[in-house]
Design a protein around this nucleic acid. Sequence first.
DNA 1: GTTGTTTTGTGTTAAAATTACGCGTTTTCT
DNA 2: AGAAAACGCGTAATTTTAACACAAAACAAC
Lengths: 256, 256
Amino acid sequence: MENHEKPHFGYIYPRPAVTTDCVIFGFDMTDELLKVLLIERGIEPFKGRYALPGGFIKIEAKTNEYGLVVEEKNESLLECAKRELKEETGFDVQNIYELGTWSTPGRDPRCITITDAYYALVTIQPVRGGDDAADAKWVPLYQVLNTIKNLPDGMRFLAFDHDEIITAAHIRLQQQLCFEPLAFKLLPKRFSMSTLQKLYEAILEKNFDRRNFARKMLDSGILDVFPTESRNINYQLNLEKYEEFKRTGRLSNLIF
Amino acid sequence: MENHEKPHFGYIYPRPAVTTDCVIFGFDMTDELLKVLLIERGIEPFKGRYALPGGFIKIEAKTNEYGLVVEEKNESLLECAKRELKEETGFDVQNIYELGTWSTPGRDPRCITITDAYYALVTIQPVRGGDDAADAKWVPLYQVLNTIKNLPDGMRFLAFDHDEIITAAHIRLQQQLCFEPLAFKLLPKRFSMSTLQKLYEAILEKNFDRRNFARKMLDSGILDVFPTESRNINYQLNLEKYEEFKRTGRLSNLIF
DNA sequence: GTTGTTTTGTGTTAAAATTACGCGTTTTCT
DNA sequence: AGAAAACGCGTAATTTTAACACAAAACAAC
């Protein structure tokens, strides 16, 4: 542990280190499971444990020969989250949302660290071979949540306080689904009604009547219909209609 | 602007300064308006402008004679928000929720600063004399939001990026009201049905039919009834029933 | 390719919730 | 005192939700 002598541009009190972590949700079309992307930590602390991808925020400060700051550059927390994601998992994520901060004293044994957590929604490509990207791994969400829930008191599954973060992310995902058809961001462009339903069921942990579900979705008017070679029908989100319906408040019936 | 030479316990890159800001909502029974607590800034930057109460996170680090860290103390961001609130406005707030972080580069002209924003709900005491607490002032929310909305492009009403924060806080308050009867936290213990309705209308910016509103509230089962001297009726939130109904999912009909 | 099983598309109907008003009385304001 | 607003109690029409039936197409196993 080394001390740090870089300039801090005006505010002279000690500062916490700032990181971002990200809960990446993906829907696996092959087994129709909602999954999260975890990485195995290669270094201490928590070496060998699974954790959310994330890392420290980047601030570049240039000082002249007298030690005065002549140039500063920094990224926003959102940019930080996206960059770390790309670095650690190779994912280029569009749909990313802030979840909240975690700052309990002692949460990082190295130093006083606060993290700004994000969650992101991606479509898992159907036939990706072995999981790429370092030691990143897709794990079924329900497995993670169950493991966490059944842990003996005081024990943790993931590194740091990531157990809490992933639990909060799931709750937030459930709630946001009531305001916004987020689910589409987890699916490929076109999908079947039953796939969409399975996804809703996976997120909300509750089952729907197949026929009522389909009617509700279709009645909302945001889906375009595409026949397939077989008798089955595929659907696609109509973004214009969705945005319009959102403005005019006609999406309330999408709440389950 | 001075440089900073204090130790940073292990993580050796430059760090941003960290602050918290708080949007305090209060419902003024006298004029039945939803208001926010703003403070007039006494110092640069943005001297004389209104701003959200808030400030820097407190970290105390003690080093021995060799400059090594022997003791650290820090507060969580939530504790920081509560402390700053107390210091700047005298308010001791129970109901406080995290809103999100703001970290756009350049948002604070002094230095790289990220803020974690909170929102809080308080009951404004009926006959508080002149606004106490330094230069804190209750301002009707709709006035602030309208001012912000009608500002010429690029102009701002509040200091820093507090325009965005207060706007986001209002949206969040609206959304959270759909999951939780937050409104009660803005009212005194007992209140009339029309007061409750006015509050809901103020938050959601939408009007309800008096009779339907009352029925919905009463049917939910979370209100206790108290006659008054006059023919009128007062109500009070029954916390036990509320918690029970929340667990058993019987509050869905409280969504408007 | 035949057979049994599962999935998919298309309804109907009863119950529940929401919305829109009517009316007589009490309070409030001037 | 009189007019206007607020209040409590109620009903009817409409919309939304929940529960369930059936046949054709796809799929799996042999």
